[in-house]
């Protein structure tokens, strides 16, 4: 939760309500349980640890100037580190999904590059599992477990294909910086 909130602040300073709206949009029905209170609890914790500061909004579109939360330098570093770290084979779908959303919104990382890195990692893991699965009869206890793990990894890889399609369709036309 902390990393996701930090990453969403990387785009621009925001207030809690706006963060909640963006999280709800990214999570759909899975975000229903998320209430504004949790966002503010997280923001308060992040403020205490010096990763965010409250500041006054520069120029409100309308209404009074409100307090917004902004990343500190160490907050920036933490976001960059979170986006760069590999998520590990056991990372769940929602966590990686939020990482892609945060990467795209903040512009700090390329969601397609993150998906690629994860694909390689999962593929290497699947290779290990699949070699082991072929070496064990599927009707043994060990073989049955390996079959389950291989199927899970395969599902993760298929979902990554879907991620790649969606994020590459959203990528601006000039991807690649015009070189090549």
């Amino acid at each position: 939760m902390q990393d996701v909130v930090l990453a969403l602040l990387a785009k621009e300073p925001s207030h809690g309500y706006d963060l909640r709206r963006r999280l709800a949009a990214a999570l759909g029905p899975l975000g229903e349980a998320l209430n504004a209170g949790q966002i503010y609890v997280t923001l308060t914790r992040l403020e205490k640890t010096g990763l965010v500061v409250q500041e006054r909004e520069d120029a409100p579109v309308r209404g009074p100037r409100r307090k917004v939360y902004a990343l500190t330098a160490s907050g920036q570093q933490r976001v960059a580190a979170w986006l760069a770290e590999t998520t590990g084979p056991r990372a769940d779908v929602a966590e990686f999904h939020l990482k892609l959303v945060a990467a795209a919104e903040s512009g700090l990382a390329d969601p397609l590059a993150l998906a690629d890195a994860r694909r390689r990692e999962l593929m290497r893991r699947l290779a290990e599992v699949q070699h082991a699965a072929l070496a064990h009869d599927v009707n043994t206890e060990a073989g049955l477990l390996l079959e389950g793990i291989a199927l899970r990894l395969q599902a993760d890889l298929r979902w990554l294909d879907a991620c790649e399609r969606t994020w590459s369709a959203r990528a601006p036309g000039g991807r690649g910086g015009g070189n090549g």
């Binding site: 690629d116 694909r119 390689r120 593929m123 290497r124 699947l126 290779a127 290990e128 599992v129 699949q130 070699h131 082991a132 072929l134 070496a135 291989a150």
Partner: peptide, 26 residues
Amino acid sequence: AATADRVVSLRDGVPVDDTRLADDAG
């Protein structure tokens, strides 16, 4: 694909990834 030594991914006729896989079972 995971049983191969190497995996090349194609998208729209273009290789977009080229990964070597380990063959040490488990």
